[in-house]
Design a protein around this nucleic acid. Structure first.
Length: 325
DNA sequence: CAGACGTGGTA
DNA sequence: TTACCAAGTCT
């Protein structure tokens, strides 16, 4: 089954509004349709053959490895997570190992992954696990959701990937795949909608292990084939079933999808400030922090914010360090 | 619900 | 070079 013969995929129409095949008009919920089972086979077979060999997917990877990877992968590419995840698991093999160190060490080891509050939350989550869950990453979705830094997606991802449970795992990759294959649009809405959850629920395989496999497979398909910028329909296992493609791959219409500026923002200043703290072995004087940004007002605002967020600890004598507790 | 929150790669 | 994008969460 690893050599599932992919059906030949006709080239996408390149001309203007060239004769488009009638959009497989809303054939209704894919729920009961036999097409659902077909999709499962096609995507899972593709996954069997093309899934990346990632550390947190190996048989010997425990729930903690999966959980750490999920935190790191929130808004950060796999390629950048790989080396840091390895360091973390070697240094802190279990939640209790991380919990035993000050949160500042988590922030320091987070390096340049970005969004360092995730490091703080992961440390807090590890502490909660050590104290209230006997050191074991909880299996229960609600208990996972109650941990800091774990939201709807991550709770479902850990329960599904680490424990093989049946959950709706809706991340940006899966949402994009469903938007195209099922809804026939290029991109999903900005925020997850009830309609998307309904589609995901209808498509989720009944059998538990298969549901977990499906979750990982659809995510991987979105990451490797059905990319945001360059969908490679030529190698897509479900191109023949893709509503978006069958309707001529219409471009996204509506308001711009995002708008994420960075240069000159408080975020950039925070990043520079924290970089100084991470590089220093101990407390640093305010003068060292003053050097990273010329605008004094913005600088102090950013520093204040970091202290408020618990990412920086102020010390007597105008000195600062990463949080010691 | 919109906006804040880091960083670096790619088109 | 600018702009978008990368396995979200929290307020």
């Amino acid at each position: 089954m690893t050599s599932h013969p992919l059906p030949p995929v006709p080239a996408a129409p390149s001309g203007p509004a060239a004769a488009r095949p009638a959009p497989a008009a809303a054939t209704g919920s894919a729920a009961g349709s036999p097409a659902a089972a077909d999709l499962h086979d096609l995507v899972i077979d593709w996954f069997d053959e093309h899934a990346r060999d990632l550390p947190w997917r190996r048989p010997d990877a425990g729930a903690w490895s999966v959980m750490v990877s999920e935190f790191m992968l929130q808004q950060t590419p796999v390629s950048r997570v790989l080396p840091v995840h390895k360091e973390w698991l070697e240094r802190w093999p279990r939640p209790a190992d991380l919990a035993a160190e000050p949160p500042g060490e988590a922030v320091r080891a987070w390096g340049r992954l970005g969004y360092p509050r995730r490091a703080l939350r992961l440390h807090a989550a590890a502490t909660a696990i050590a104290h209230r869950h006997d050191g074991e990453v909880p299996r229960d979705h609600a208990e996972l959701l109650a941990l800091p830094g774990i939201g709807e997606y991550t709770a479902a991802a850990v329960a599904s990937f680490a424990y093989g449970q049946r959950h709706i795992v809706l991340d940006t990759n899966v949402r994009r795949v469903f938007a195209r294959v099922v809804s026939g649009v290029q991109y999903p809405p900005n925020a997850t909608t009830a309609a998307e959850r309904r589609i995901a629920a209808a498509l989720l395989p009944t059998e538990e292990a298969r549901a977990a496999r499906w979750a990982a497979a659809t995510m991987e398909l979105g990451a490797l084939v059905c990319g945001a910028r360059s969908p490679e329909c030529g190698v897509c296992p479900v191109a023949a079933h893709c509503t978006w493609r069958l309707s001529g791959s219409p471009a996204h219409d509506g308001p711009p999808r995002r708008g994420q500026t960075y240069a000159g923002t408080d975020r950039q200043v925070r990043g520079r400030l924290l970089a100084v703290l991470r590089a220093a072995p101990g407390p640093v004087p305010r003068s060292a922090l003053d050097a990273v940004w010329s605008d004094a007002a913005q600088r102090s605002r950013a520093l204040f914010g970091l202290v408020q967020d618990g990412l920086v600890e102020p010390l007597p004598g105008e000195r600062f360090q990463l949080p010691s507790r």
